[in-house]
Amino acid sequence: MKKILSLLLCLAMLLTLGLTAMGQAEDGGELRVSLCIAETLGDLGFYDSANEGLKRLEADYGVIGSVVECKSDASMYQVALVEAAEQSDVVVAVGWQFWDGLTAVVPEMPDTKFIFVDNGLDGVGDNLMSITYAENEGSFLAGYVAMKLAQSGVVGVIGGENSDTINNFVVGYKQGALYANPEGTVLDPVYTDDYEAPDKGKEAALSLYSQGADVVYAVAGKTGLGVFEAAQEQGKYAVGVDSDQKYINPDVIICSMLKRVGDSVYDVISNYLEDSVFEGGTIWNADMSSGLVGLGYGDDTMTQQVSDELKAEVDALAEKIIAGEIVVESTR
């Protein structure tokens, strides 16, 4: 009898131990989140924004974050996902490059939640959620502002590559620019085929400025840093992308098209932590109404080229887009 009692006691102790361990995992203190980056951090835009979201999660919820940079190494994409999935509860894959990798890995790792940023992938598994952004709507506003500030009536755009995602920025920008001035000209986009080459960005921007553009929109990650240098050299303007990039060079960057990747990642994971809601198997299109796309003008300490009246016009346009009065073209 004594033996049985002590055995039962031991069992109860073990059970409580197990339960407390599970409790800890659920209250978020130990949620492990891995960020898989297709290229490298330091683009001062897209990837860095995602990383900021992770840092905020670490600060607010005490999640244990880690970052894997694949450095554009195609052989890494799948390996990085598998390793991240083995080590963490939530894997955030940032970059279209993970498309094939996720298709293969997600069904094999049913216990891990996956978030795919910037592309919509469905039918892969209930543990995968995709986030896409209405960059065309934000770019519409950017195009509007660019054209309003272009005295020559000519604006240009530089893309990192000729792809659907990048062209989604381009069509919105073009539509917004022509909305501001139907007589204006939007030069053909120049693609650098490289997101990490500021030198190519500079040359591409110089060629656009020489064709008469007063404002160039840089949709090319780190390559865009060269665009800002070209603007400085030529005394012209540029529009930043993804993060509020104005601080990089407040004299030439009139505004930035925000794509708040970090905030969207933060929202999804905090929802999961607080309400255990994870909308797996769905694609969330973060549009103008979500507040995750729009324009940023830096802060008050920086030179402001965009007047307050123009900012108010932009806000009114955003309302129209949300209300559906303006339908922005899309390549998605």
Partner: peptide, 16 residues
């Protein structure tokens, strides 16, 4: 020349 003449920055693998 790349980092001070052509551009005014250093970027990873900028010798490309």
């Amino acid at each position: 020349h790349l980092s001070l003449g052509y551009l005014t920055m250093f970027s990873e693998n900028m010798s490309a």
